[in-house]
Amino acid sequence: MNATDFLSIDLPAILVAILAATSCGLLGNFLVLRRQALIGDAISHVALPGIVAGFLVSGTIATLPLMLGAMVAAIIAAGLIETIRRVGRLEAGAAMGVVFTAMFAVGIVLLEQTGASNAHIDAEHALYGNLESTLWLVLSAWSDLLTVEAYIEMPRQLATLIVVTCAIAVLIAVFFKELKVTTFDPGLAASLGLPVRTISTALIVVVAIAAVAAFEAVGSILVIAMFICPAATARMLTDNLGRQLWLSAGVAAIAGVGGYFAAAFGPQLWGSANALSAAGMITVVAGVMQGFAMLMAPRYGVVTRAMGNRKRRLDLAS
């Protein structure tokens, strides 16, 4: 591997993976605590009809209209889920299941009916993302990173994700207190005069923005995983919300780097030159980290607790 290849092919992909994972991972903390972990799943699935509708309305496959379409679809889905849950008095999971599958079906019918499937929009692409084709072509040596041109010619997905990730970090920092109390005790929050419903709607809108920004680059499946696994991992490790946020960001970033390397260079270990799906591999790495945390976390790990109990029994016996 030479520096040029690494800088123009691997570096942008790694950065995109890290940013996508971190932005979704941070928000995931609140989704997991609010028992809304699967809203990311629902939103990622409804991106398909959104993208197809964006294509049909704009007539191009330019990114912006498609992403706008996905955004709008995500917000409509979130609104529908909330409405059905409230007026139909259905459990949140069932409401989600009804809405996202139905909207996904609309997407597929639109795709087939309008011939949009010939225009390079396909459901599989939406699932797997396009991490490997994020290129930063102007970089040929490390010193290029110090030039202004490099940043002018930065891949667009990367630029978008930098903006979105920073915005999310700032929003969480600024509204940390409000997010915390509305998540823990909505009743108290409302009695303090906080607009509980507005805050949860805003959270879902930001989730939709993060999902759409990330999903173009890394695919919906990785987005779903990143809304859940890093936060769940961090949840196993700490009882402090601030620390949990930092941990989840760290876990997300490690999964992004680790998964990318495993997918790009792992196959060489058994002599195959073909890379595996990076998005899939990042998900798997995140899952492995979560599995490890669930077993080995210092206080709440299943194995740790079992060993603690055993030690206590032995102490009692002796």
Binding site: E178, K180, A189, L192, L194, R235, Q244
Partner: peptide, 15 residues
């Protein structure tokens, strides 16, 4: 929920 007793009491001060 990841919060300490002190965190929860501090919520009363958020207003």
């Amino acid at each position: 929920f990841p919060a300490s007793a002190e965190d929860v009491v501090a919520m009363g001060l958020y207003g």
